[in-house]
Structure formats: C-alpha cells, structure tokens
Design a binder for these strands. Structure first.
Lengths: 227, 227
DNA sequence: CTATATTTGTGTATCTAAAACGCAAATAAA
DNA sequence: TTTATTTGCGTTTTAGATACACAAATATAG
C-alpha cells in the first residue's frame, strides 16, 4: 500500500475538572462557529502539523478558556466514523484537574464563553461530547479509589476536612474520617503547616500542603492506595 | 479558526501477545516497503476514511499477519512530531492476547513475513515501535495484577498448572499454588471438565475451560482481582 | 460571662482477607 | 516395587481494613 491521503482530521479535547464548595465541575466553552454554533462543548481543537498532541491540547485549552494547567493525562481516542458532521475527525481526549479559584476564565479563539458547569447540571453538548464526558467521569471515579489524585483540585493550603469532603463527593459515599486520615498520613504525602484556620464554629483546623516530591516518589515505587 | 488541513496521517498498530511453553511472545511483521524496508515492526497501517479505529486495526492485523482476534483494547495514542520519517503520523495503539497455536500466520499486504518473537529476544524495530512495546508490556504486567486477563493466552482446555505458569511468567515472580488456586476458584471463572491429562510424570491434571459468560458478568459487577 | 453547639483530632478493638505452610493422592520413570 | 514428580487441597498466622467513642478547641446563643 502506498502512502495514502484520506481526509482524516485530528483533534484534541481537554476535559478539565474543578472542585469548589463540595461540588465537582467541568470546564466547557460555548462554540463561536458552526457546527453546533452557540452550543456548549469540551474545549479542544485541531492538532497542528508541527506540535505534539500534548502541546496541542495545552495550547487549545489556553486559547479557548485562558486556563493553563501543568498536567493533562491522555484518556482515550475517539474515532467513530460519524462523530463530527464536518467529516472524519478523530479526537484524542485528555483530562486534568485544577482548583477553579486559581484560574481566571478568558474565552477567545473558537469560543464565545468559557464557563464551569456543575457535573450534575450539564447543558446539552456538541458532537459526541456527552459520551466523552461519561467515559471520563467513570475513569476519574475509578482512578481515585486506587491512586491519590485529587490534590490538584484543592487550594495549595487546605484543612484536612476539605480533602475528606472531596473524597466523599468523588466517591459518592461517606468515608470514615479517622481511617481516611490514617491512610493519607501513612503515605506521608501531606506536609502539616504551622498555620491554622477557623471555619465558623468548632476547633480550628491545621492547614496542610500537598507534597508533590513525595507523590512522584510514591509513583516511582509503584505504591498504590485504596480507599 | 476555519477547518484546517494539516497533513497529519492516522495509523493504528496492533500489539498482539502470545504465550506458549512458558514464553511470552509478540507478533511482528517484516516491512515490505520503505521506510524501514526489511526491518521488523508492529503490525498496523493507515486508517481509512470510512472505517472506525477498531475496524482499521482488525483489518490491518488480518491483512498483515492473517490473524483474526475478537478483542483488541485501545492502549495509547502516540503523537510525537518526528516519530515517522514520512511526515506527521499519529498512531493509535491497540493490544490483544491470543494463543499462537490456534492461528496460522500469513503475511500479505505491506508485510514480507509475520512471525512470533520471544519477548526477551526482540529484533531491532522500526519507527518508535520499541517505545510502544515498552509501554504495552508495562501495561500488560500492571493489568494482570488486578484483572483476570490472560485466559485468552491459553488453549481452550488447559490444566491449572498452565494458568499458574502463565501468571508466574507474566508477573516475573513465583505465586503460591494453593493461594492462587483459591483466588481463581473464588471467582468461579473456570469450568472443570471431566477430562484429565497426563503431562510426563506425576498425577494427571484435570482440564479446565475459561467461562467467558461468567467473566463478563464479573466485569459488569466491577469485581476485581488481586494476585 | 456561661452554657451549648460545632468542628477537629486521635487510639483501640474487631473483623476480614491475604500469606505462609505441609501432606496425601495419582501417576511416570527408574 | 520403589522413587521421583506433579496435582490437589486445608489450617494457621499475619497484616490490613473497618468499626467505633471521646477529648480538645473554638464560635455562638442566651
């Protein structure tokens, strides 16, 4: 077979999860152009010839939402023949986690508006983006049970109760505070700061910081987690 | 941004693992054309405009090696800018497992020869296929510890010791025969047949058959495994 | 100012599942 | 017929997960 030239286009999509006040949200854009003009969609776009997939997905996310994120993980490549009305478009999906408060949204290229949506109140979505989101959410919920991800969703300094609430939300079930704390402490993944914070009534909470060094070390050792 | 036309080509690759006589092997082809003419490579090729990624990877595997396989799992999409000397080529890699004895190799399109290679004696490979294989092997070894895959690698009827030997090989460490048997039995995933087989000296072994129905049911229930 | 409500923070006892371990049964080979 | 080899299983031990209760430190209500 000779070098062919089928008209297949390649895109990347960035599914970005946020977390705030006990709610998980997803970053979406409102499309500026056809097809699906005015509809909501996952940020993303065409891969350029001289950039890697990772470069493309970071660039598109930045262009369409103003958000820069240091780590996006490749999730899956969606290649159904009819997933895009413009023709054959194959999309490589990535997902990442951030704390929304640390990022200002600024729509520009291709996007009318960029906005956070609560995961339980998603609007109608363009293309097969509903399906892509379902796959991603399933993956996230699976992943959190055996890998200590999720710290990226919190502020840099946070009380332990924030982490507990995050896991409760992600898992969709309560976790025992004492056992949860023991497990996290055994990982040595959090640094306790000298600061304390008072949130309304009750004893003030110590603030913690996520120790990324230690986390990378754990990953190298292949140590996993189980909630 | 308008509908662009970067010259990005899309390929699929099929990493097929085999297992025989205590050895894990991988199916490779010898390339018939440039680039890397005469060199060994992972079977695969360009995606056509009117076929899904899954259709493409099954087709290419069949064309290049004669092997038909019912399940290939998407692994990762490789998109480094310079991974193919012909230009920008992004490849979606899939992997699958079969028992080599059940399949006759027949090279044809694009391939001079199709051949099994012991995983520890791989030849020089084309493109970034060495890297792709490394990623795949890591994934396979990871996967086997928490999911009861691997049955596809055995014959339809097999003695328990075959399964044990397979796991020993894949994990690279011995497993306790009694505990391993208990775990597998608890899954109810094997049907014991009335047949027995004698392999050299020793007590004859009962033959077992993999129960695919039961396996699918387990997957639905989200039940996992741990060796 | 005092009493009450609220949240943080920790230790121990119990249960469950994994790991360790040895011996009998059935055959081939010597 | 004796010995070596492989299959096949049950019990004990250990480690980790789960369940559970009370003191400490603050805000709030009276």
């Amino acid at each position: 077979m000779s070098f062919p030239n089928p008209h297949i286009k390649l895109t990347v999509d960035a599914i970005v999860f946020g977390y705030n006040a006990g709610k998980i949200s997803i970053l979406l854009i409102q499309r500026k152009y056809e097809p699906f003009k005015g509809q909501w969609a996952i940020p993303g776009g065409f891969v350029l010839e001289d950039e890697s997939l990772e470069e493309a997905v970071h660039r598109e996310l930045k262009e369409e939402t103003g958000v820069s994120i240091n780590y996006l993980e490749q999730l899956y490549t969606f290649g159904a023949v009819d997933r895009d009305p413009r023709g054959r478009v194959v999309s490589v999906a990535y997902f990442g986690l951030i704390h929304p408060d640390g990022h200002t949204l600024e729509a520009s290229t291709d996007a009318e508006v960029a906005q956070w949506f609560d995961i339980d109140e998603l609007p109608a979505l363009s293309f097969d983006h509903k399906h892509i989101l379902e796959v991603t959410i399933t993956r996230l919920k699976g992943k959190i049970t055996y890998e200590p991800i999720g710290f990226e969703l919190l502020e840099t300094k946070f009380p332990f109760s924030d982490l507990e609430k995050l896991y409760t939300t992600l898992l969709g079930r309560p976790v025992d505070r004492r056992n949860f704390r023991k497990k996290i402490n055994n990982l040595n993944i959090l640094d306790e700061l000298d600061e304390k914070i008072s949130l309304g009534a009750g004893r003030p909470a110590s603030l913690f910081r996520f120790n990324e060094e230690r986390y990378k070390q754990l990953q190298k050792e292949g140590i996993i987690f189980e909630i």
